[in-house]
């Protein structure tokens, strides 16, 4: 049940426990308990809403920053990652294979704000060797959802 429950919730976390139980063919109580367990085990880490901010008046920019760092003895990349991901401006941090070490996703109100964050907070960190900032110009798809208007059901209303 765990796998299927997670697959359903990943797509729609607003389904009620009753509906989830019906869809999985199990008891309501079991679903409730499993969700609590998954939360306790931090397999379910949160319930968010996917918003296309570009459709609103809110000013915001997202940047992807390639960061090269010197790994530290005994700590590897974890310590520097920890110093970076604790900034509230930072939305995601990934350790990468290839030409650089960390991908840091930063959000800010303006390009200037993000640039200042990189210049004043990120780049000066002891072990950071270099940064390269790429601003996101348009989000086409996020978390598997295409941000395009007008995707409607074009099937005939009744067919055999």
């Amino acid at each position: 049940m765990r796998q299927k429950l997670l697959e359903i919730l990943e797509k729609d976390s607003r389904l009620s426990v009753e509906d989830l139980a019906t869809m999985l063919g199990v008891q309501k109580e079991d679903v409730q308990r499993e969700i609590e367990t998954l939360e306790a085990e931090q397999i379910i880490c949160g319930y968010h809403t996917l918003i296309n901010w570009d459709q609103t008046d809110k000013e915001s920019v997202t940047a992807l920053i390639e960061v090269k760092v010197t790994p530290q003895r005994g700590e590897g990349f974890d310590k520097i990652a920890h110093r970076i991901y604790n900034f509230s401006e930072v939305k995601a941090v990934y350790l990468m294979s290839g030409g650089f070490d960390l991908t840091v996703i930063v959000e800010g109100k303006t390009m200037k704000e993000v640039a200042l964050f990189v210049a004043h907070k990120l780049a000066p960190l002891d072990t950071v060797l270099s940064t390269a900032t790429h601003f996101v110009l348009k989000k086409y798809k996020e978390y598997g959802i295409i941000f395009e208007k007008g995707q409607k059901d074009e099937r005939m209303i009744v067919c055999p």
Binding site: D153, R155, M156, I157, V158, C159, P160
Partner: peptide, 26 residues
């Protein structure tokens, strides 16, 4: 004519219909 036909004609003239009538994947 297909038994579904007559029904289809009524449906297509209505607005805001929620359909459970389709025979193909979503």
């Amino acid at each position: 004519p297909s038994g579904i036909r007559k029904f289809f004609d009524i449906v297509t003239e209505m607005k805001d219909v929620i359909s459970l009538g389709v025979g193909e994947p979503d």
